[in-house]
Design a protein around this nucleic acid. Sequence first.
DNA 1: ACTAATTATCGAAACGTTTCGATGGTGGTT
DNA 2: AACCACCATCGAAACGTTTCGATAATTAGT
Lengths: 340, 340
Amino acid sequence: MATMKDVAKLASVSTSTVSHVINGTRFVSDDIAKRVQDAAQQLNYHGPSAVARSLKQNCTKTIGMLVTTSTNPFYAEVVQSVEQACYQQGYNLILCNTEGDAQRLKRSLSTLIERRVDGLIMMCAMLEGDDAQIYRRLGGLPVVVMDWGEVDFSCDRIQGHSRQGGILATQYLIDNGHSEIGCITGPRNRQQANLRYQGFVDAMNAANLPINPAWVIEANFETEGGKAAFAKLQAQGELPSALFVCNDMMAIGVLHEAQRSGVQIPQQLSVIGYDNIQLAKFMTPALTSIHQSKARLGAAAVNALIARLHEPHLPPQFMDIEPRVTERASVASNEVKVKN
Amino acid sequence: MATMKDVAKLASVSTSTVSHVINGTRFVSDDIAKRVQDAAQQLNYHGPSAVARSLKQNCTKTIGMLVTTSTNPFYAEVVQSVEQACYQQGYNLILCNTEGDAQRLKRSLSTLIERRVDGLIMMCAMLEGDDAQIYRRLGGLPVVVMDWGEVDFSCDRIQGHSRQGGILATQYLIDNGHSEIGCITGPRNRQQANLRYQGFVDAMNAANLPINPAWVIEANFETEGGKAAFAKLQAQGELPSALFVCNDMMAIGVLHEAQRSGVQIPQQLSVIGYDNIQLAKFMTPALTSIHQSKARLGAAAVNALIARLHEPHLPPQFMDIEPRVTERASVASNEVKVKN
DNA sequence: ACTAATTATCGAAACGTTTCGATGGTGGTT
DNA sequence: AACCACCATCGAAACGTTTCGATAATTAGT
């Protein structure tokens, strides 16, 4: 690959002049500029090496992102919006999947640090205990955390306002005349999962409705988990009349399992999901869900990160994206409900 | 951030010695090695700067990937397997979405080149005409192309053997007693889309079945496209008894629209999809589909790329991943079919 | 005991940029 | 004509590594 030096030699100017021409960083007389352009053309020189530039400038215009599984539609949508925001701001994204594996998280974190990413976005289960000491390596690297909990280093947070979302979902079911309401939660040790459940509890309490513990089941945020949870619910006997399923993937699992075992949704059981992934509207029945804007989540994360790059000593920022319910066909009013 | 120089100074050794200790590239006496380790520890030195190293070694251990929309489940699964393979081989992945936008493709390509990625995986619509000259910038950069067509530069190819997949799908419908078979294709100017359609044609011809042109509709590989295509099909009058929908996303759209307008699947219309995305089995009815292993596609792409890095002058490689049908509930045998 | 062979460490150049101070040339002012 | 500003370009150092040849120190061979 041709370098600036080569171009400089061919154009009989100094490297610094070439640099200024290429970057437009200083005035260069027209004829010399032209000579440089021509030489560049001739040598097929295309853009300065980002790696050399990064070395000199101590900034890579790259951000790293750790995500549990980019294959999960919710994550996929967030990742995409992150990438989009990066693109618009002139950054590139290095994506690392952790697959929930601590070892992998550690190694990925290390390589991202070695690569001198300018910042980090984490949307994955967190390390704890001894492993948590790896975060000390971060050494002031700006980090934005999405999706969970307490963390022992300073960082910004973008969150989905999950508690309010949980309230919204439950309240929606209540407003539709339901009082026997169950909840399929995500892994309760993850903050967002727990907050959604707390929202459920809040709303039930506020409405003076009893919570049947047999109807709250913890699952893993995956389709299979939702399916298993529904099977378990059914094995226990009487079903509630409505179910708040804490994410759409699990809701898809319960829809599927319900259909398989002949319980009709929403006639016999109303279901509301969470996340409003793109596919939700294509389920049968179309899935009513709590919408949170993945585009805004991603953009907010990137913006927070870049803001911090420019102003490293701001106090940690918190940001919540408002959820809202989007109505579809998986929740029925309890008046028309047909008891099984 | 501490550098090797700092460590060297503190340990009173030369930088080169530090380098050898850190990388294990040469024998270093135990006591000096220890001194270096300690100094590194003390200065909180963590790993050599990948950017400096890349500059020196002229290799970034990074590969770039251009993809249309990483949000599409099929792509998402492939991207994930690519990332996984990269991880295993010690590479990092820079992901760029093109969103089908030529401008964006061009800019992303440029930055990837400036970043000196070691190789490129492209799974996106291709540039044509004048824009195609951007590929000349590649200058020998190893490229693996997935998912389409003719291309005017040398590269390796990983493909899904779409024609055979099309035959498989159609044959499966025929074997189930169908003879009135329609096909909803992807954008026919994309090779994979066209090959699937060609497979359909092949199988129909081989079975001496007529193709009703009203029953082949071109759509865009998205859920909405499938939905629209089905609506169009229905508006035209008599439906076929079975439909080969050339990817699962469109099939999901079809399922949805069919349900909405009261045609029962598979009783009135059998549907087979293509790709076998993870969600396919959770549709109602569970979607019968042509499976192609996303894991193998991704791994093959990365392996081909890395093989070429080591052996740049191999002739272009082609590789097909075998498809197979995975049976579920969206195709019914025609004997039981209930004419509407 | 003196050279030869071996071993462990050092020093310097190079990778491709950016950036700052230095340099020389031009034109304007008195 | 002498001086000063100013302008356009140059040169060199620096960024953090790797790597090769050189050097000093140790051991072995006769």
